Simulated assay, not measured.
Amino acid sequence: MKRKRKSIIGRLFMLFLLIVLIIGIRYIYMLKKQVTEVNKWQETVSQTAEEYGISEYEDIVMAIILTETKGNHIDLMQSSESKYGTTNQITTSEESIHSGVAHLAEVINESNNQGTDIWTAVQAYNFGSNYINYVSKNGNKNTIELAETYSRDILAPMLGNNTGKQYRYMNPQAFMRNRGYLYENGGNFFYADIVRWNMSIMKKIDKLPF
């Protein structure tokens, strides 16, 4: 009886490992496909980053594209709002990159002027440039804790959420930290952390032999 039980447990464990392996392979394949789509815009990103004087942050631009659209949308950098003040106004991916890089260059320059770190600028790409001034008065370094406070106490109320209303956000970083939520109208306070993670992932995926 004990042998039979051990045999069943062993089979279940092997089945579990097989399922984990299949899920892992599928996830890596999906990531590889997404990164390949983003990499198609490498030359345009490189030229545009040079034009706006932020060539050293080219990897961040690529990671923003992966974060925003995974390379699968006309508005690759979701830059319509920063240029036009409303969504769905961008008509070409080239325009999206130019507008997105221009906005990123603007917040990077402002961040440098105020002595904050590069990830403050990246978070400001999502929050808006006022976040840079907030960070400069609170330690000069972006953190998830600081970004969440800004999202909850400043950005969300400014855009109409005065009750701290939340909504589900099923992203791995968010799920591990707070079981997955953001504040309605409060932007994404995980944004800089996700871009940094995606930048690291892209470098690893690019080294895969397939």
Rank of each mutant, 00 (worst) to 15 (best):
M1W: 09
K2R: 13
K2L: 12
R3E: 14
S7M: 13
R11W: 11
L12W: 02
F13P: 00
F16H: 09
F16A: 12
F16K: 06
L17K: 01
I19Y: 12
I22S: 11
Y27E: 11
L31G: 01
Q34F: 11
E37P: 00
V38Y: 01
N39D: 11
K40N: 10
T48S: 08
S55L: 15
S55A: 15
E56I: 00
Y57W: 14
V61M: 11
A63L: 10
T69H: 07
G71M: 07
L76S: 06
L76D: 07
T87H: 08
Q89D: 04
T91I: 13
S93W: 04
E95W: 05
S96W: 13
I97P: 00
H98Y: 10
H103T: 05
A105G: 07
A105M: 05
A105C: 08
I108G: 00
S111R: 08
N113Y: 14
Q114H: 12
T116N: 03
D117A: 14
D117F: 14
W119I: 05
A121T: 08
V122R: 01
A124D: 05
N126W: 02
F127V: 03
S129A: 13
N133I: 12
V135I: 14
S136D: 13
S136W: 13
K141W: 06
N142V: 08
I144H: 01
E145N: 10
A147Q: 01
A147P: 02
A147W: 02
E148H: 10
E148M: 14
R152P: 00
R152W: 01
I154E: 00
L155W: 01
N161C: 07
G164P: 04
Y167G: 00
Y169M: 00
N171K: 05
R179P: 01
R179I: 04
G180P: 02
L182P: 03
Y183C: 02
Y183L: 02
E184C: 00
N185C: 04
G186H: 02
G186T: 04
G187W: 01
I194G: 02
V195M: 03
V195D: 03
R196W: 07
M202S: 04
K204C: 07
I205S: 07
D206Y: 06
L208K: 10
L208H: 10
F210E: 12
F210C: 13
